[in-house]
Amino acid sequence: MSGRVLITAGASGVGRAMAESFARDGWQIWIADMDAAALDAAPSSWMRSQVDVSNEAAVKTLFGEVLEVWGGVDALCANAGIAGPTAAVEEIKLQDWQACVAVNLEGAFLAAKYAAPLMKAQGGGAIVVTSSTAGQYGYPYRAPYAAAKWAVIGLTKTLAMELGAYGVRANVICPGAVEGPRMEGVLEREAAAKGMTRDAVYNGYASGTAMGSFVEGRDIGEMAAFLCSDKARLVSGQVIAVDGFTVNPDPKV
């Protein structure tokens, strides 16, 4: 199966890797992102929109444009997320908590809210929401992020229940630690919070997996493309970790 896929935070990182995986399978691509420069650097054949996924009016407008241009959407990858603060829970400011939840949880909710009517009307579709292994095990010093990533799992399972009768599937991907600039920032902040070196934190993440490795963006992209394909036609309501199998979510190094 190929079709029309909309990917939030699709201009760089994991989202860009998702778009590239779908493109290799012949899908039409629409990426939404806040980063204008990254949007401009995307392949010219991709549709693109600069959107704040936590702004309902902006998300509603985006799906209106998708409907006008494409007539519908076959797959949604609700991938937008931010790291949020790295601090002990008593040191986290409420506004920082709210900002993290707004993007990671409310952004996924809004994307699903406006994708669902289009998919129901056409009698089918697939939704993939990006959570994290932090949404399975918890994440010390990252309370807002972990809370939001747990919450999107409940959201997605509910979507699978509500939308299954309309031929719409919904699944969650939980990436482990993904190589790239965003994770580098996490490593540096976590090292400072824990009084460790960046390399010690990096090695701790890697050694906490059965396969002793970080994940690459393409690993996530290929799983998203599979979950939205006919090969996964009866896969719904599932939470799939792509992490080399986390055996110790908070290794002490």
Rank of each mutant, 00 (worst) to 15 (best):
D199W: 04
W97R: 07
S45V: 11
A80N: 05
T61S: 15
V242N: 01
P249D: 05
D219A: 14
S44D: 15
K194A: 08
T61F: 07
V186K: 00
Q238V: 04
L227M: 14
Q98W: 05
L118V: 06
R24F: 06
A42R: 09
A9Q: 04
V253G: 11
I92Y: 03
D219S: 11
M1N: 09
T133A: 01
V178K: 00
V128H: 02
Q122G: 09
P144S: 07
T246Y: 00
S45R: 11
A111M: 14
D25M: 12
D250M: 07
S45P: 00
T158I: 07
G154A: 10
A224F: 10
A99G: 13
A57Q: 13
E222T: 05
L159R: 02
D250K: 01
M183W: 12
A116W: 03
E216L: 10
T61Y: 05
A170N: 06
A116L: 08
A206Q: 13
V129M: 06
S132Q: 05
A206N: 02
A32N: 10
G124L: 11
A147I: 03
V53P: 05
G10Y: 04
D250I: 08
A36T: 13
A75E: 04
E188G: 09
A32C: 09
G124W: 08
G208N: 04
E20F: 00
N203C: 09
G204M: 11
M223Y: 08
K157L: 09
D243A: 09
S2E: 09
S45L: 07
V168P: 09
L159Y: 07
V129C: 12
S213K: 14
L62C: 08
T130A: 02
L110I: 04
D40S: 15
I127V: 15
E179D: 13
N203E: 15
K93P: 02
K93R: 14
A11Y: 06
V247C: 06
G107E: 05
D40R: 13
Y137F: 15
D243I: 00
W150S: 06
M196S: 12
W30F: 04
M161E: 13
E216T: 11
Q98I: 08
A115C: 14
S21C: 10
V69G: 04
S49E: 11
A112H: 01
A32E: 02
V101C: 09
M196P: 04
K231Y: 13
S54K: 02
V168R: 06
V89R: 04
V128G: 01
M47Y: 10
E90T: 11
W97I: 06
K60N: 11
M161P: 01
Q28S: 15
G212Y: 04
G185E: 11
M196H: 12
G15R: 08
I173W: 00
V53N: 04
S12V: 03
F63G: 03
A37V: 10
N79Y: 06
G125T: 07
P117F: 06
S207D: 07
A191K: 06
M47I: 01
Y139M: 08
S44C: 10
P140E: 10
T133E: 02
G167K: 10
Q95K: 14
D96E: 15
W70K: 09
F245A: 01
T158A: 15
V201R: 08
F63D: 02
V69P: 03
G195S: 10
A241N: 01
F214Y: 12
P251G: 08
Q122Y: 02
I220C: 02
A112G: 13
A9K: 05
Y205I: 00
P85H: 02
E222Q: 12
A160W: 06
V172E: 05
V235A: 14
